[in-house]
């Protein structure tokens, strides 16, 4: 049995870890100069782990805290809205697919990666009133798939290897 204090401390640790991973991403050079803003989404490894180990509530809490804190540390208001749209949409889709239970961790993560990008673009299209941004969706769907695949494989590995008491 887990107790509440221990749970809270553990989630705090996860937020810190997610922030650390986000910071590493800020430091890394852009993966593709042609399309700015493409990131691996390293912190999502933590979210995948939490979603499967601790459930939706824990994963969503850490996701939200991470978005707020990353914005305060490295971002701006626009980035916050994009992240929020991506985070909420991808979390919703991942929870749904997890419930449907026909994909493994990696498949769910790929869906999360793609819908995260889709959420950001939809928010951008709405904020800037430019439907042309939809073109980006094609590129971002591919990069989202690749990122989601790598993140999912890492997440699955963690879920398998980290002892169940965590």
């Amino acid at each position: 049995m887990q107790n509440k204090g221990k749970d809270t401390a553990f989630l705090g640790l996860c937020v810190a870890l997610a922030l650390g991973l986000a910071y590493i991403e800020v430091l890394m050079p852009p993966l593709l100069a042609a399309v700015p803003g493409i990131k691996m989404g390293l912190p999502n490894i933590i979210l995948i782990f939490l979603l499967y180990r601790r459930g939706v509530a824990s994963a969503a809490t850490v996701s939200l805290l991470r978005i707020v804190l990353v914005t305060l540390l490295f971002g701006n208001t626009m980035a916050f809205l994009y992240s929020l749209a991506g985070g909420v949409l991808s979390m919703a889709v991942m929870v749904l697919l997890k419930k449907l239970n026909f994909l493994s961790v990696t498949g769910v993560s790929v869906a999360g990666g793609v819908t995260h990008n889709a959420g950001q673009i939809l928010m951008a299209m709405w904020l800037m009133n430019t439907a042309e941004l939809g073109y980006y969706l094609i590129v971002l769907a591919v990069t989202g798939t690749i990122a989601g695949l790598l993140i999912g494989l890492c997440g699955a590995l963690l879920i398998r290897r980290i002892p169940n008491r965590w």
Binding site: Y52, G107, V110, I138, A141, T145, A156
Partner: peptide, 29 residues
């Protein structure tokens, strides 16, 4: 019992279908 941490055939089909849709949409665009 299904081990959710192992890649399944469904995942491969899902990813392939996803990429196919994207490729078709991209080509159309």
């Amino acid at each position: 019992h299904i081990d959710k941490t192992r890649l399944r055939r469904n995942d491969v089909i899902f990813i392939a279908a996803l990429l196919a849709v994207v490729a078709i949409a991209g080509a159309c665009l």
